[in-house]
Design a protein around this nucleic acid. Structure first.
Length: 121
DNA sequence: GGTTTGACTCGTA
DNA sequence: CTACGAGCCAAAC
């Protein structure tokens, strides 16, 4: 009997977590995506909060800074260390955070049909 | 088991 | 524009 556990209790991250990381890796430099957008592309339409959880466990090599709230704000508390780190990393790639905000109309990632198909299950 | 928590989102006021 | 509340879902108590 082979038991296949998808629970992260084995030490391995969940399937959704791995998918979310894959989506985040696909966000081009100079663009951002919202938590909800990443969730949807990863196959979980209402999983915005799970994306945040997945990113918390993510390696620093992952471009986690390209994920912001739907309104274009950084999800961390405005004066926290994490907030400043994300802000700095975004500015490094020409994504300005003005008034605590990113202009989603200009910087929101719009994946092509090909990119969507590549990521969906 | 239930309750709380949080890197969320959306509608209303 | 901000504030609040309800909905959301998995993890942690």
């Amino acid at each position: 009997m082979v038991s296949v556990s998808s629970a992260p209790s084995d030490g391995a991250p969940s399937v959704f977590c791995a998918r979310a990381w894959q989506v985040v890796r696909s966000i081009p430099r100079g663009n951002v995506a919202s938590y909800g957008q990443v969730a949807e592309l990863a196959g979980m339409p209402r999983g915005a909060r799970q994306v945040g959880r997945a990113l918390r466990l993510a390696p620093d090599s992952l471009p986690w800074h390209r994920v912001v709230t739907a309104s274009g704000r950084i999800a961390f508390a405005a004066h926290s260390d994490a907030y400043r780190r994300q802000c700095a990393r975004l500015s490094e790639e020409e994504v300005p955070v003005i008034g605590g905000r990113i202009d989603m109309r200009r910087f929101r990632w719009q994946p092509t049909l090909d990119e969507r198909l590549w990521m969906l299950p």
